[in-house]
């Protein structure tokens, strides 16, 4: 289980990455992350929505209320050009962190 801080820090890149695959809504995003991380990343469901709203305010994503085929109304989010740029920046930063850590992990022998 990732710590609260790590979850908070990784929410934005995760959302951007998932939305770059296509539009989606809050509940589906949460399910995708849970499945992809095999349960290691557990979002508190209610906390995702303020993040989505802030990202929308920052112009990274946009939203639209739509009726699903089941007749349910949901708010769908879509990534914007600005969000694509932010995603590339995030990717570089996370890769830098990952690369550094990977190097370090190899130098410490019995760390599991």
């Amino acid at each position: 289980m990732a710590s609260k801080e790590l979850v908070a820090a990784s929410t934005q890149p995760l959302v951007l990455a998932l939305l770059s695959e296509g539009e989606s809504y809050g509940y589906a995003l949460i399910q995708r992350v849970r499945a992809l991380s095999a349960g290691h990343l557990q979002w508190t469901d209610g906390m995702l929505y303020p993040v989505l709203h802030r990202m929308e305010e920052d112009g990274l994503i946009e939203s639209e209320w739509k009726e699903a085929e089941t007749g349910r109304r949901r708010k769908y989010y879509r990534i914007r050009e600005e969000g694509q740029r932010a995603l590339r920046v995030e990717k570089r930063q996370w890769e830098a962190v990952d690369k550094t850590l990977q190097t370090l992990w190899r130098t410490i022998p019995n760390l599991t």
Binding site: T44, D45, G46, M47, Y49, P50, V51, H53, R54, E57
Partner: peptide, 17 residues
């Protein structure tokens, strides 16, 4: 329960709104 504590969630919304 999965939505989280109402106080915390409202606090996050308050920051945005």
């Amino acid at each position: 329960g999965r939505l989280g504590s109402p106080g915390e969630v409202e606090g996050e919304f308050r920051k945005v709104n």
